[in-house]
Nucleic acid binder design. Structure first.
Lengths: 182, 182
DNA sequence: TTAAAGTTTCAGTAATTTCTGAAACTTTGG
DNA sequence: CCAAAGTTTCAGAAATTACTGAAACTTTAA
């Protein structure tokens, strides 16, 4: 393999744990992403020098993240693996999957906790803070659920706009107000 | 400590590694967040039953994340620790810090790699994919840098709007076009 | 029904990460 | 300058997480 490509795959491995999986799975993900043709489990095992069993676990995990999909080639009973979509799709999947693992459990714990009545000042403060966290996570969750509905092009526009979107929001308010004034 | 509060702190511990730190640091973070008054390292050590040395490491890490700040109480030379701001501020810090650790290294590797010329079809495909990833990460980075400039209230508006922001963007285009038409 | 091709599971081992606690270090009031 | 109060460091131990490889399982073509 070209050394630059290999460097990329190894980098994915190193970043793996920061992205929510582990080294091997990071490498597998990188490899599948930049491979022109779908790969078999054995090819992955050979390319990365990891045991067949480990590849099997990794595939299961990547499927749980909905990042890869199985393909069959007519006349061949092996399973071939390819990315489950374009880069934007995959990014949204990672984002969503991470939200499920990193935000949802906390949200449900907080919902539960916030039913409690405070018994003293310290508790009251703690509950207020939790309420703040709860509201923030709720907002993020709601927004994250809406995101994929916009489609890549519009998302791109929005992100490239950056803080400028603030002005657009102002404009909208202005427009609406002038509308109601009349 | 109230059992609900304790449950929250322990939960933060369990989530710790998913949020980018480890159990202890997660607990410390949760504890400091819901404590009405700033805490000393010893109080943290006692409350969470972890060694003084570990608390010291944790404090350093939480400071690196810019999530806590030191406070001094007149006539007392101990250091007291408190959250470094309101919940939105902290969330933005986590977001930014994670971007630095999870996105930036990849972006710089990709920039480097993309200077290469493809030697064959497979390499060409790989480089195209990397270009896609690069562009996406670049967009996200740019957007992330803009985010904090908006301020919590506007961010809230934006997020609550969800996919609805797409319509606002359309409206803007329409407005601009009708402007240029005249 | 069988054997060949392929996949998954999991107990044991290896690698990594985290934690402790004692020693070294720093700061400050007197 | 000293001693007391407080903080940091880090080598080794403990806990956690990841990996291997062989055995068990599944699927399919003949």
């Amino acid at each position: 393999m070209n050394s630059k490509l290999e460097a990329f795959v190894m980098h994915c491995g190193e970043m793996g744990s920061r992205w929510g999986f582990n080294r091997t799975i990071g490498q597998m993900c990188g490899l599948i992403l930049i491979s022109k043709n779908p790969l078999t489990a054995n090819e992955i095992s050979d390319a990365l020098n990891i045991s067949r069993g480990n590849v099997s676990m990794g595939i299961k995990e990547l499927q749980a993240w909905r990042l890869i999909q199985v393909q069959h080639i007519p006349g061949d009973r092996k399973e071939y693996y390819a990315p489950a979509g374009d880069i934007w799709t995959l990014a949204l999947r990672v984002f969503e999957e991470r939200r499920k693992r990193e935000v949802d459990p906390t949200l449900s714990l907080l919902r539960d906790n916030l039913l409690t009545e405070p018994g003293n000042d310290a508790e009251e403060y703690a509950l207020q803070q939790m309420q703040q966290i709860h509201d923030l996570l709720e907002t993020i969750t709601h927004w994250a659920a809406e995101l994929p509905k916009m489609g890549p092009e519009k998302l791109n526009t929005l992100m490239r706009l950056g803080a400028g979107v603030g002005k657009v929001l102002d404009m909208k308010d202005k427009f609406l107000n002038s509308g109601t004034e009349k």
